[in-house]
Deep mutational scan, measured.
Amino acid sequence: MKVIFLQDVKGKGKKGEIKNVPDGYARNFLFKKGLAVEATPANLKELE
């Protein structure tokens, strides 16, 4: 799953980066803790 990092995550990505991460990791950790959002067209547009 492609995500946009909202904060630096040690060993995974830095704020503003767009990266592919495993689905479970994204849903169960990154999204729940507010560290990233899914890289949807709407979210990508907001990032610009």
Rank of each mutant, 00 (worst) to 15 (best):
F5E: 00
L47I: 12
R27G: 02
A26I: 07
E46I: 14
F29V: 12
K32P: 15
K45M: 13
I18G: 01
K33R: 14
G16S: 05
Y25G: 03
K10I: 11
K12E: 11
E46H: 11
G24Q: 13
L35D: 01
K2V: 14
L35K: 03
P41L: 12
K33H: 15
G24K: 11
G11A: 04
A36W: 01
R27L: 12
V9A: 02
L44R: 07
K19A: 10
V37I: 14
L44W: 07
F29Q: 06
N20E: 13
E38W: 07
A42K: 12
K2G: 05
K12Q: 15
A42F: 09
K45Q: 12
Y25E: 06
L30R: 01
P41W: 13
D23S: 15
G24P: 10
F29M: 07
F29W: 11
Q7R: 14
K15G: 04
E17F: 03
I4H: 02
K19H: 11
L47F: 14
N28Q: 10
V37Q: 07
F31L: 13
N43K: 10
F29N: 05
L44E: 06
D23R: 14
I18H: 03
K10L: 13
F5H: 00
N43V: 12
M1A: 05
L30A: 00
Y25M: 06
A39I: 05
P22M: 08
G11Y: 09
F5K: 00
V21N: 00
G34E: 06
R27M: 10
V37W: 07
V3P: 00
I18M: 06
K33P: 01
D23P: 12
N28K: 12
M1L: 14
K10T: 10
K15I: 08
V37E: 06
A42D: 13
N28A: 10
G16D: 04
K19N: 04
K14R: 13
E38H: 07
N28E: 12
R27F: 10
G11T: 05
K15A: 10
G24D: 15
A26V: 07
G24H: 14
V37F: 04
D8A: 08
V37Y: 06
E46S: 12
L47P: 06
E48A: 14
P41T: 11
G34L: 08
I4G: 01
T40Q: 04
N28G: 10
K32H: 08
L30K: 00
E48M: 14
A36F: 01
L30Y: 03
E38M: 10
L47D: 06
K2T: 14
K12G: 13
V21L: 06
R27K: 12
G34W: 06
L30F: 02
L47H: 10
L6Y: 03
L44F: 06
L44Y: 06
A26D: 04
L30I: 01
P22L: 08
N43P: 04
R27T: 09
L44A: 05
K14P: 01
L47T: 07
N20H: 14
Q7H: 13
K19V: 11
L30V: 00
I4D: 01
L6S: 03
K33Q: 13
V9F: 04
V21S: 02
K19M: 11
R27A: 06
N28Y: 14
V9T: 03
V9E: 00
I4R: 05
P41A: 14
E48D: 12
F29T: 07
L35E: 01
F5R: 00
E38G: 04
G16E: 02
K10D: 13
A36Q: 00
E17S: 06
L44D: 04
K32N: 07
D8M: 05
A36I: 06
I4V: 08
D23F: 14
Q7E: 12
K10H: 11
E38Y: 06
P22N: 10
A39D: 03
N28R: 12
K2S: 11
E38P: 13
G16F: 10
V3W: 02
N43R: 10
A42N: 10
L35W: 13
I4W: 04
K45W: 11
I18P: 01
L6Q: 04
K10F: 14
M1T: 12
A42L: 11
A39T: 02
K33G: 08
N20R: 14
L30T: 00
G11L: 04
E17A: 06
A39N: 03
L6M: 08
K15V: 08
E46A: 15
D8T: 11
F5L: 07
Q7V: 15
K32S: 09
K2N: 11
N28D: 13
F31S: 02
G16M: 05
L35F: 10
N20G: 07
K14Y: 12
K2W: 15
A42E: 14
L47W: 14
A26P: 01
E17T: 06
K14M: 11
Q7L: 11
D23V: 15
K15Q: 09
L35G: 00
L6V: 09
G34F: 10
P22H: 09
